[in-house]
Write a protein that binds this DNA or RNA. Structure first.
Length: 108
RNA sequence: GCGGAGGGCUGGAUGGUCGCUUGUUCGGGGCAACCCGAGCGAGAGGAAAGUCCGGACUCCAGAAAGCAACGGUGCCGGGUAACGCCCGGGCGGGGCAACCCGACGGAAAGCGCCACAGAAAUCAAACCGCUCUGCCUGCAGAGCAAGGGUGAAAUGGUGGGGUAAGAGCCCACCGGGCCGCUGGCAACAGAGGUCGCAUGGCAAGCCCCACCGGGAGCAAUGCCGAAUAGGGAUCGCGCGGCGUUCGCGCCGGGGCUGCUUUCGCCCCAGCAGGUCCGGGUUGGCAGCUAGAGGCCUGCGGGCAACCGCAGGUCAAGAGGAAUGAUCAUCCAGAGGGGCAACCCUUGGACAGAAUCCGGCUUACAGGCCCUCCGCGCGU
């Protein structure tokens, strides 16, 4: 599982499908190859100050690490977008459930 | 005990599970750069923040000196690599006090401004008035600036003498100017003499004086580097100004910091083509963390800031940016129940390194400690 780092890749992912959950927004973009899936994280200044953004990003990174290797699809770029308050405050098991349901919906 | 002043410290703890960055050792792979696995370490703050000052470091600008411009600082002394910071002192102001606050050089160099009110706001004067004289019920002339009133500010204040009424007109005390003296490195202070005593305020309006300052910043900068365009050197044609008898002769001209001087450097066209050099975007590596370092202890100097010496110890280095996620128990705190032990619920301030240091400023839940002042009570 590689991490997205280039602005170009984030812009590509933004053209793909979107799934909105209470705690985050998931974007997915099919690259059309069989290489391992990739994931990126975005927390804009809307999420809060630097401490709030870092915390939101770390929680997103953690749920991605636990769920994506088993349930994500190869050849896909995923982007998780943090949302104000909910990303940092939502109970962790619900956060995991949000990601699973979003992945299920977005692959259809 | 109540109220207050100054200063310092702290900024949740432990464990389980799963991760990230980095150092090192071992094993494996690779020509190598490096990659993979395992073990052992390290991994956010007092403000990491605002980016407001001061530096280190790097590059740019021809150098030096002087001048000008612009910006900054502004009582004195000390500390420091330096500062607009810190310490000590002076002066002024506030507080019963501990203590706190202060853009705190110059207003007889010049310009400008001083709203409203007021007669009058800096250069002269008199609104209500007061006194005397003349005519006699109001006016004219002369004298006065004490009283009233306005204002942030009205030509020093209080008391007395004096006078027609008054006035530093005269006197005492206070205040002030000037002069030297004494103390102090100095800011300044003290006592004395002298002058009745005309230089209102604003310099946070311009300005003057003294001192300091080149610009940009780690996205600096250096190195490695595919392609394309542009660039440079050299060969070749060929060359600046003036005069010309068209053979040539003579002489230079221009640019480089805001200006000047000295020194120094560079250019003198343009162009088809050949050859050679080179080029630096995405990316990678370096810069990159050991430096005016922090902390502890001891000794020495200093009122202190701080300095010196010796010993010990500690030390993130990311780069769409690691330093965590989650669960449990505990500890502060808050609410409720209970005589109590205790139980239940809730719940964690401000805030995240980005080249590195020294400051300042701002934000901050809760907790702890020290010193001092005033009042009250007891001895």
């Amino acid at each position: 599982m590689d991490i997205l780092k280039k602005r170009k890749h984030f812009l590509e992912a933004a053209r793909g499908k979107r799934e909105v959950r209470q705690s985050f927004v998931l974007q997915a973009y099919r690259r059309g190859d069989d290489a391992p899936l990739r994931v990126g994280f975005t927390c804009s200044k809307k999420v809060g100050n630097a401490v709030a953004r870092n915390r939101a990003k770390r929680r997103l990174r953690e749920i991605a690490r636990r769920v994506l290797p088993a349930e994500g699809q190869p050849g896909t770029d995923y982007v998780l977008i943090g949302r104000q308050a909910e990303t940092a405050a939502r109970p962790f098991d619900l956060l995991l459930a949000d990601l699973r349901s979003a992945l299920k919906d977005i692959s259809q």
